[in-house]
């Protein structure tokens, strides 16, 4: 494996969990719901995925369990914020705390056990192509899932009726309701989708990135994903770019250190954040664009009139 392949592979591994978690949250926020519980759903996905894979020996069962773990947490969030109309910010934070605690409890029997790694895709001949084979045809399956989901979400939001309904619900829930759309049901579906991709992101950590269960192993990635959604001004293409920018700057920072360039490590560690902020500033100079895409009823609970 050449050096540039190693760099790109590491960047992809670092960026994929961010992209997976963020693409779901993008849909959730497009429907007008702010779910701050990504970290909690992600860590639950990680522990459920690891546990199921370890017990069954099948990484794919682990992926399934991770999705279910994430969805379960998201439905709890949905029930609280959509049915009981609790404050979304507080509920999201509570979901994060609950997820971190509950995952520690579930995972206490799985600490220190070797995990099952999700095998990389291997297509005969294609995966062995020089230079691009390993990069394009030899990734782990979840990388393709993350890219596929991004494309699907972009298409769905922009060109389909469903996408229009989700955006309408997010822009003005009262208008959407008046038009006869079931606002709460749409939001439940979006929240569950967000839970599923957060669970997948967790599975990526415990089955691909570092195949083991360690308490708190998400280490704040849910929050980065949340920031990326805002960074992208709720556009899937920009979201993918943002996730790869963040992962790329982070990994190149490590390379700069390993090559002994003499740049202070603290500066390099802060670079992904600095780069993200700079990009955000540049994007937000186009006010019209950011205003158009911001879901107008983001974070507001909806109570239908009787």
């Amino acid at each position: 494996m050449s050096a540039y392949e190693a760099i790109i592979l590491t960047i992809i591994t670092a960026s994929t969990p961010l992209l997976l978690a963020a693409i779901g949250e993008l849909v959730v926020e497009r429907s007008g719901v702010l779910n701050l519980g990504i970290e909690g759903m992600m860590v639950m996905g990680a522990v459920c995925g690891f546990a199921a894979a370890h017990v069954s020996g099948s990484a794919w069962l682990g992926v399934l369990a991770a999705i279910m773990g994430g969805v379960a947490m998201s439905l709890l969030f949905g029930f609280l914020t959509q049915t009981l109309i609790t404050n979304q910010v507080a509920t999201g934070l509570a979901i994060t705390l609950l997820g971190l605690g509950l995952s520690g409890l579930i995972g206490s029997d799985f600490v220190g056990l070797p995990g099952v790694k999700l095998a990389n895709v291997s297509i005969p001949w294609l995966s062995e192509l020089p230079y691009v084979g390993r990069l394009v045809f030899g990734q782990d399956p979840l990388v393709y899932v993350s890219i596929g989901l991004t494309v699907a979400v972009a298409y769905l939001l922009k060109y389909t009726r469903w996408g229009l309904i989700i955006r309408a619900v997010g822009q003005s829930h009262t208008s959407a309701h008046a038009l006869g759309y079931r606002v709460i049901a749409v939001r439940y579906a979006c929240i569950a989708f967000g839970g599923a991709t957060s669970g997948l992101a967790g599975a990526y950590l415990s089955l691909v990135y570092t195949p083991q269960w360690i308490e708190n192993m998400t280490a704040g990635r849910g929050w980065i994903a949340l920031a990326l959604v805002v960074f992208s001004t709720w556009l899937p293409g920009r979201l993918a770019a943002g996730a790869y920018l963040f992962g790329g700057v982070w990994i190149l920072g490590l390379y700069a250190q390993a090559m002994g360039l003499g740049i202070p490590s603290q500066l390099l560690s802060s670079l992904p954040y600095v780069a993200t902020i700079l990009a955000l500033v540049v994007i937000s100079t186009n006010r019209r664009l950011s205003v158009i895409n911001t879901p107008a009823s983001l974070g507001q609970g909806f109570v239908p009139d009787r």
């Binding site: 494996m1 050096a3 190693a6 760099i7 592979l9 590491t10 591994t13 670092a14 969990p17 950590l205 990135y209 570092t210 083991q212 360690i214 192993m217 280490a219 990635r221 982070w250 990994i251 490590l254 390379y255 250190q257 390993a258």
Partner: peptide, 13 residues
């Protein structure tokens, strides 16, 4: 854990 793994990969490469 993720970043520790990244750093290890970088050093190996």
């Amino acid at each position: 854990p993720g970043r520790e793994a990244d750093a290890a990969k970088v050093l190996i490469s």
